[in-house]
Design a protein around this nucleic acid. Structure first.
Lengths: 221, 221
DNA sequence: GACAGGACTGAACAGCTGTTCAGTCACCGA
DNA sequence: TCGGTGACTGAACAGCTGTTCAGTCCTGTC
């Protein structure tokens, strides 16, 4: 079926315009197969559009990638704003949970984080800042324990969260479900395990204190 | 410089044979750029060999991948055996720490886990089994706390560990160093943060108990 | 000393890659 | 009515992809 020029009162509904359809198709394909695994023609086909049009709008494949990064970042900021309006559900896990709706963006983000790039680096910085702020509020509410280094802990929690999402294929295999692919009703195995780890801890209190304090002292010097 | 046929008493030292050099080059390149990011000619160049020879030995690019997976898995098993001989340093983090020497293999593994495939799935199953066993011993020694579901916790700890390693670029940016790229002497920021999270926990004991018990009850029914 | 077999190569190939080009169509202001 | 502008296309291109082919060289066996 050939493309319908977006005339005034044409036959079919106007839908999103081609440029947006291309971005949507690219984000969906990228998040499934990574950047190298998707060709411009794949994207074009996904958007019901010719390959040269992708170049026409975005200049090159790299250009498309850049715009997708920006678009994803903006979606994250919007989602953050909405979360702030909604209520006071903090913690990194709740952050992910809140993202259930725009899971495609999250999946894209995870791919982008591996590939790297200025846009995602800046976004990651933002996410860390936000996490630190949310954590501080949650500490005030006695939901989260204070840490000797709030920023580092926030960084590692984010990396662990995103990282485990990256391996959602394995998670699904080993846990039976994964927040990346299944509806929230089936997140039980994941959530209970996360709660276990982050509420009860893993190491016995005294087990590694010596090692820990050694490292801390070494870093202070 | 052309290839020297591996004659009897030739000029240069015999080194490893071509087949092994190809595997080594492939694993190194794959772990840096992923599977799609590396061409057969890249691998051939890295092993000082012609591209058709790679095909000759491994049949196809997919064949090479498969052999690399098997090889990496074997290296992990060897490393495990050596760890068992060495001593009693358990915990997932110590497992990674022990792998400092064969970091290339670990990096390859991380790429393979994203890409998926039978070989890595089987390896991952093995790693989970091992982690469960190690954890049980560490619980006996009062180094690690028991968990309501040892296997699930082991799975999530592995996924978090591997996952955060996948994002080593971000870790390096945000923490200043990463076990994936830096020598053990600079692992301080990573290790102290991990100890903090896994020793002290993150959530306050009562904060999410209701949610947790709700999920657990739902799963039992 | 003939010969099979295997490691190894350069040259060549078909197919796919991102991109360019020339041209069509619809819209819009003069 | 004209001409400019921009969305959009099929055809074509150069470059790279994995792979094939024919042939060279070495090694071991009878």
């Amino acid at each position: 079926m050939a493309y319908q020029y977006g005339g005034t009162g044409n036959t079919s509904p106007p839908e999103r315009d081609a440029k947006q359809r291309i971005i949507d198709a690219a984000i969906e394909l990228y998040s499934d197969h990574g950047f190298n695994g998707v060709t411009i023609k794949d994207v074009a086909a996904g958007a019901n559009v010719s390959a040269p049009l992708v170049i026409h709008h975005f200049g090159s494949k790299a250009g498309l990638r850049k715009i997708c990064d920006k678009y994803a970042a903006q979606r994250v900021y919007e989602s953050k704003a909405r979360a702030i309006e909604m209520g006071k559900q903090f913690t990194p896990e709740q952050m992910l949970l809140h993202s259930a709706k725009n899971r495609p963006i999250l999946r894209y983000l995870v791919q982008a984080l591996i590939a790297g790039g200025e846009e995602v680096d800046a976004l990651m910085d933002q996410l860390v800042d936000d996490a630190v702020q949310y954590t501080a509020e949650a500490i005030d509410q006695e939901l989260i324990k204070p840490s000797p280094d709030e920023r580092r802990r926030a960084v590692m929690l984010l990396l662990q969260g995103f990282g485990s999402m990256m391996l959602h294929r394995q998670m699904k295999r080993l846990l039976g479900s994964s927040p990346m692919t299944d509806p929230p009703a089936e997140w039980g195995p994941y959530l209970t395990t996360i709660f276990d780890i982050y509420t009860n801890g893993v190491f016995e209190p005294e087990a590694y204190r010596g090692l820990y304090e050694g490292l801390a002292a070494q870093e202070d010097s």
